[in-house]
């Protein structure tokens, strides 16, 4: 029997998330040039093709899987997280791992225990640490300086000509998180580090703008009920509390809460990555634990771990605990007795 249903569909939910990424992408392109857009343009067709091929190999119809828009979304999320001038073939390796290994090998949409985009990201990070930590120095109208143009970006990404009009070494730099870590290793204090990396701006010039634009997208997602508030709020609050705590104790060694909230992939992770319904906890209490643990892990890895940013690792680690969290946070059902 055909039941009456609400008009939300998987594809529509995915489309809302994609729409929410738009401000973030605009900021990325204005500050770092069109690298993210070029990557997205490469990865979206590759993602859809890979998905269709695997499904075809499993002798199923690929049409619904293509129509649900989850593969393009994965590509867009990954592209937003990659350094803007990453060579094209690395981007393809990343998306192939994300779609084939992290998603389709587990059975496709809904069956994957780990967030595909983050698996792709981490695989690239461990395989090509050099390229994956070479970011551009923020530039553009907002933060001053000239952005790298489309032609130059494409030249570097595709490596088409022998001597691109600009050299990678000339424009690349570490991300603020990376630079801050380096500064701390050098024995500088946080405030000195901030001066060094960003002319005194909060969390590294350009980066706070990118994080704020992702925050805007995230607020739209919560307002449109595409995601629930639990995970992002608990994650950001946990990150805020723990960073405030350490910052109060030793402001020279530990960065300010605002710095942590507005740098690296914090906002992208909080609203777009951690909230991936397939891999996140689903019980209300579980979501709060899930988010809070991610927040604490991000802080831990950023402060004491080997990699500068930690959103991907934290999310993947918590993905692993999702079934356990769900098991222990079953909500009280209607009519359940307290001692039952």
């Amino acid at each position: 029997m055909i039941k009456t249903t609400a008009d939300s569909t998987t594809a529509r939910e995915m489309l809302k998330v994609i729409a929410a990424l738009i401000p973030g992408y605009i900021a990325l392109s204005l500050i770092f040039g069109p690298g993210a857009l070029i990557h997205a343009a490469i990865m979206i067709p590759v993602a859809m093709l890979a998905e269709a091929t695997i499904i075809w190999m499993r002798s199923r119809s690929a049409v619904p899987a293509i129509k649900d828009l989850s593969a393009p979304l994965t590509a867009l999320l990954l592209a937003a997280a990659l350094p803007p001038l990453l060579p094209w073939w690395m981007a393809i390796v990343g998306i192939l791992f994300a779609i084939i290994i992290a998603k389709q090998l587990y059975g496709g949409l809904g069956q994957n225990p780990f967030n595909p985009a983050m698996v792709g990201y981490v695989i690239l990070l461990v395989s090509f640490p050099l390229e994956m930590t070479s970011w551009l120095t923020p530039a553009g109208a907002i933060v001053g300086g000239d952005t790298i143009g489309f032609i130059q970006s494409a030249e570097i990404i595709f490596g088409t000509i022998e001597n691109p009009s600009i050299t990678i070494d000339g424009v690349t730099g570490a991300t603020p998180l990376d630079a801050m870590k380096t500064a701390l290793y050098q024995g500088l204090t946080i405030s000195e580090g901030i001066k060094e990396i960003s002319n005194g701006v909060l969390a590294g010039s350009g980066w706070e703008i990118i994080n704020l634009t992702f925050l805007i997208g995230g607020i739209y997602l919560i307002a449109s009920r595409t995601i629930s508030w639990h995970i992002p709020v608990s994650m950001l609050v946990a990150l805020l509390i723990i960073s405030a705590l350490f910052n109060t104790v030793d402001p020279d060694r530990y960065s300010t809460p605002l710095y942590h909230l507005l740098s690296g992939g914090t906002m992208l992770g909080a609203f777009f990555i951690a909230t991936d319904p397939v891999t996140a906890s689903t019980t209300p209490r579980g979501r709060i634990w899930f988010g809070a643990c991610i927040g604490i892990l991000i802080y831990t890895i950023r402060s004491w771990g080997g990699y500068p940013d930690a959103v991907a690792f934290s999310v993947l680690l918590l993905n692993m605990f999702t079934p356990l969290i769900d098991h222990f946070t079953q909500p009280k059902i209607y009519g359940e007795r307290d001692n039952g």
């Binding site: 939910e13 649900d68 809904g110 629930s228 397939v278 689903t282 009280k332 059902i333 209607y334």
Partner: peptide
């Protein structure tokens, strides 16, 4: 489509299942 564990159903369930 496949279940994506979006949990819309648990938000709607009057028995809180």
């Amino acid at each position: 489509y496949n279940c994506i564990r979006c949990a819309s159903c648990s938000d709607a369930c009057p028995a809180k299942l």
